[in-house]
């Protein structure tokens, strides 16, 4: 197991290198002269030249990449063009907000999804199953910004139960977390249901019943642990979608997180900041997938065969 973790960890290194290369290239992939764009359409030549110098765009590409990587290793993500503050400083106060939002949403998705999925599977083809699965269908068919707007209208404006925007108190967290977690919950619910249905028909479930176990134990102890194996993979993919979802949710609920920072940076054509945000998002995604792979391996003992 330890050997696997170490090996899997080393395998992420080329992925991270690839990510940095892509993020680095961002600035060169946009059409036109990046310095001109950042300085503004009407900026005089001298300003543009200064911008170019400041970003080091005059050097050959490999020198630029070398410098970029060197800075990166020292924890320097460059400087924001607009605010003149370092990208790290820009991101630091925001990142925990976004991670919290994503994490709470993920937990909500997993709890709701697992419960709904297991209940549906146990009561398969019944009314409860049909209701839950229909709800799930709505859940992931709904665009989350629309769900957010509806929640604001219903809960905040019409019923005046919860604040419509901001971040800080737990009341403020509820609506964005529901908005962001619903889609994931729906997908996990459906995945858990089909995986559970598969498991319920396995021979070892019959063995567990023949032993005299309570049905609850049969389902949760012998069934769920096996059913979780494919669900874990979905959770990993889900996390990626959640990160991109924060961009919308934070905008709708005016949460000052990374997502909103990304939108602002893009609007302001603040490329170093955009690069920094994309890199952080990518690293989080790689990290989550590492955790997912390790837990998959932990759950699925049979993989160790090879």
């Amino acid at each position: 197991m330890l050997q696997f973790i170490v090996r899997r960890f080393f395998q992420t290194i080329p992925v991270i290198l690839g990510v940095t290369l892509l993020v680095f290239s961002l600035i060169h992939l946009i059409p036109g002269d990046p310095a001109q764009i950042m300085a503004g359409e009407a900026a005089p030549e001298a300003t543009v030249e200064a911008m170019r110098e400041r970003l080091g765009l005059n050097d050959p590409l490999h020198v630029q990449y070398g410098r970029y990587m060197g800075n990166l290793l020292q924890g320097d993500l460059g400087q924001s063009v607009r605010s003149s503050r370092s990208v790290v400083e820009e991101i630091q106060p925001r990142i925990m907000i976004t991670i919290r939002l994503a994490l709470y949403s993920m937990i909500l998705s997993i709890i709701l999804g697992l419960i709904a999925g297991v209940v549906s599977a146990v009561r398969r083809y019944g009314i409860l199953d049909a209701t839950l699965m229909l709800t799930a269908l709505f859940g992931f068919s709904m665009p989350n910004f629309w769900l957010g707007l509806m929640l604001i209208k219903l809960v905040s404006i019409d019923l005046a139960l919860l604040p419509p925007s901001g971040w800080g108190t737990w009341q403020q967290a509820i609506l964005p977390v529901i908005t962001l977690g619903t889609g994931g919950a729906a997908i996990i619910a459906r995945m858990t249901r089909s995986s559970m249905l598969d498991v319920i028909n396995q021979d070892y479930i019959r063995t567990a019943r023949a032993k005299g176990l309570k049905e609850r134990m049969v389902i949760y102890k012998h069934g769920l642990k096996n059913a979780l194996i494919p669900v874990v993979t979905v959770v990993g993919i889900e996390m990626g979608m959640l990160l991109s979802g924060t961009v919308l949710a934070e905008t709708v609920f005016a949460v000052n997180g990374m997502g909103r920072l990304a939108i602002d940076a893009i609007r302001a054509r603040d490329f170093p900041l955009v690069q920094g945000i994309v890199l952080i998002f990518a690293l989080i995604f790689v990290g989550v997938n590492l955790v997912v792979d390790i837990s998959y391996r932990y759950l699925n003992k049979r993989i160790e065969l090879n």
Binding site: Q202, D203, Y204, A208, H222, K225, N226
Partner: peptide, 8 residues
């Protein structure tokens, strides 16, 4: 082969 629970 399949009557024992693989994860315990």
């Amino acid at each position: 082969m399949t009557s024992l629970n693989p994860v315990y």
